[in-house]
Design a binder for these strands. Structure first.
Length: 481
RNA sequence: GGCCCGUUCGUCUAGUGGCCUAGGACACCACCCUCUCAAGGUGGCGGCACGGGUUCGAAUCCCGUACGGGCUGCCA
């Protein structure tokens, strides 16, 4: 099933220090410049699925060469978030994290080699000078003006790549062959004026040194790819297998932005989304197994996922659908597991037995775990009565007499069980000529404070006789005033 | 502006020339079930961007147009 030309790249000679290592090496290379977002998570997951299924490795490399924006806590955030998704050093497929800043020497050494081989040259022009000259010549961007000046290194001088004539064809597993005319690619910067390597150089050198065979990343990198492929060539290595997957977009169809959009993975975790649901949902964005099933366990996804099946167009990250997946996953949890998960979402002093007793009725009603306290709080403290609920249900003629009668009957009940509580109320309501739907309303508001909630009689059973009667009595008092 | 990528229901997708009267999922609506709210069940709404080709036959292949996006940085 995996056979065929598409994966020929796996077979190609790997330009790696350890040539014995023929298994595919994938990598995920985020930069620690903000919260880890869902787009990055999906890219990581794609790589993870591939690395695991093909018996390869998943290399995590933190690209921390942007000194102005890097912060160590972002790195921790990335590692934590990946672990939450199930991508961590606990699995031997995982390798890293490596830090790009640790290999600055290699980047510079590679730069030297490029200079020596004539593939790179120094340029002393400032950005301002470039803009000015470009404007004067009626163009935009750098025109290769320092190409043949024979400049040596020096403070403030950048090192540029000498883009050769011709064209560069990128073989992409997702998009096919993409051809770029080298004439439209300007001599880009490899090393900054301050001596630090730029992304395109560092990225390629690291990939080469880490023996990376497959680069699977977001489509926004596609325009970088010809540049990077030229560097691979110039450094004497066969380029990796490329795979550019579509970006994730917001409702405006713009690439997800950390600043503008709610996309931080840890935010979803804190709101009570299950990692399993998040992972499953993310994998359906831009990919499907080709059948009508969307919900499936990771093991299955992993065995089915193929880059060739990834879509070409951007996908909207739909929180509503994520929520639906989450509800689905919550309902699929064995009850013990569900109860265990509930534990960390409610205050420590809430009675765990009580929580467990009502859990089975809560499970189908939960979309995210952060909703949990608000649904069951009436079982663990004073009732907080919702004004709208009160006025809606207590203004009826029968509310008061029905409550009175309910108190009377409930206080004499021998068997305090949901079934009996229900049938008792059914007896109580008869004289008022209302159905159970109406009759339960004032009782519900008196006991839970709201018109909506878990099944009433089960809740009352769990609440217990004493507290229930207190609450009914209190409501009656309030009605009388 | 230039280069590159893309375009199937509102959204995520199935579809690789006849199985398509375009299937599924989320959302939405209705009904059923029902102690409220959910869950569950049934049904409904809704789409191949447009125009030309190629072909006996096109959502599927080709060309063009439109629209959207990405990149165009001494960010990654």
């Amino acid at each position: 099933m995996v056979s065929g030309g598409a994966w020929a790249g796996v077979e190609r000679p790997v330009a790696s220090p350890s040539m014995s290592d023929v298994s595919p090496r994938f990598r995920f290379a985020p930069s620690p410049t903000g919260f880890f977002h869902v787009g990055g998570a999906r890219t990581a997951l794609f790589n993870w699925a591939l690395a695991r299924r093909l018996g390869g490795r998943f290399v995590l490399r933190i690209e921390d060469t942007d000194e102005a924006r890097n912060r160590p806590e972002w790195t921790d955030g990335i590692i934590d978030a990946l672990a939450w998704l199930g991508i961590s050093a606990d699995d031997p497929v995982f390798e890293g994290p490596h830090f790009q800043s640790d290999s600055a020497q290699s980047h510079l050494a590679a730069a030297e080699r490029l200079v020596a081989s004539g593939n790179a040259y120094y340029c002393a022009m400032t950005p301002e000078e470039i803009t000015e000259r470009a404007g004067a010549e009626g163009g935009t961007g750098y025109g290769g003006w320092s190409r043949d000046l024979g400049l040596g290194p020096g403070s403030g001088r950048v090192l540029r790549f000498r883009v050769p004539d011709g064209s560069t064809v990128v073989h992409d597993l997702v998009r096919g062959e993409v051809s770029f005319d080298n004439a439209v690619i300007e001599d880009f910067v490899l090393v900054r004026g301050n001596g630090s390597p730029v992304f395109n150089l560092a990225n390629v050198v690291d990939d080469i040194e880490m023996g990376i065979t497959h680069v699977v990343r977001a489509e926004e990198h596609l325009p970088n790819t010809p540049k990077q492929q030229m560097i691979w060539d110039a450094l004497g290595h066969a380029p990796p297998v490329w795979g550019h997957v579509p970006v994730l977009v917001n409702e405006q169809r713009k690439k997800l932005s950390k600043r503008r959009d709610k996309v931080a993975l840890e935010q979803y975790r804190d709101e009570g989304y299950l990692a399993t649901a998040m992972v499953n949902y993310l994998m359906t964005l831009g990919w499907s197994a080709g059948d009508d099933r969307e919900i499936r366990p990771w093991a299955e996804i992993e065995s089915l996922f193929r880059l060739e099946d990834v879509n070409l167009s951007p996908a909207f990250f739909d929180i509503k659908k994520l929520a639906a997946f989450n509800g689905e996953y919550i309902r699929m949890m064995p009850i013990d597991e569900f109860v265990a998960e509930c534990d960390r979402w409610v205050p420590a002093d809430w009675d765990r037995e009580r929580l467990a007793a009502i859990a089975t009725h809560i499970q189908p009603r939960l979309v995210t775990f952060s909703d949990l306290p608000g649904i069951v709080d009436f079982l663990f403290g004073d009732v907080v009565t919702d004004d709208d609920s009160w006025s809606k249900t207590m203004s009826t003629e029968y509310a008061r007499p029905l409550l009175e009668s309910t108190i009377g009957q409930y206080s004499e009940l021998g068997d305090w069980s949901a079934d009996v509580l229900k049938s008792t109320l059914e007896l109580v309501m008869e004289p008022f000529g209302v159905k159970l739907g109406k009759a339960q309303a004032p009782v519900r508001v008196a006991v839970t404070g709201r018109t909506v909630g878990p099944p009433l009689f089960e809740s009352i059973e769990v609440l217990g006789r004493e507290e229930t009667l207190v609450r009914l009595g209190r409501a009656l008092e309030q009605l009388a005033t």
